[in-house]
Nucleic acid binder design. Structure first.
Lengths: 68, 68
DNA sequence: TTAAAATGTAATATATATGTTGCATTTTGT
DNA sequence: ACAAAATGCAACATATATATTACATTTTAA
């Protein structure tokens, strides 16, 4: 599923995908694909993204209910 | 770093590494290595482990401070 | 104290996250 | 309307998470 919460948190910090990618040390495509829900990032990357956006894992990557 | 919180949560549910592995659909080694901090699981696997143990990502995989 | 269960470890194989490049499309600012 | 920036997308390459098998070590239970 698309990760809207991630996109919102990124935009709230006024960062482009490329900005965030540089901060966490991955490619722009990787950030884009995660936002689109097209793949399954590593925990380390999730944590790095959270720290860059001043959020926690639950804030950005936890889904309470389980619809697809 | 070793993931003590994961091990505690697993033991609290009276599950062996193998039990948990079967529940989340990975190998026993994968669970063992995650507990030992020897690698970097995918987000999907982290979520599956959390659900199996009735915890959230922050409960099991978030470290507030950043010592190695 | 001994057997069984749980865990650690290592080698090799596979699937997939991620990188890189390049280009198309969309969005934004003027 | 136009240019620039942001984003999507696709092909191919690489690194690494994960599987599998096998065996060693540690822990638990009788």
């Amino acid at each position: 599923m698309k990760n809207i919460k991630l996109k919102v948190a990124r935009v709230a910090k006024d960062l482009s995908q490329d900005d965030l990618a540089k901060i966490v040390g991955v490619s722009r495509q990787t950030i884009g694909l995660i936002e689109q829900g097209k793949y399954n990032p590593s925990l380390n990357l999730c944590v790095a993204i959270c720290k860059a956006l001043s959020k926690t894992l639950d804030d950005l990557f936890w889904e309470e209910d389980e619809e697809e």
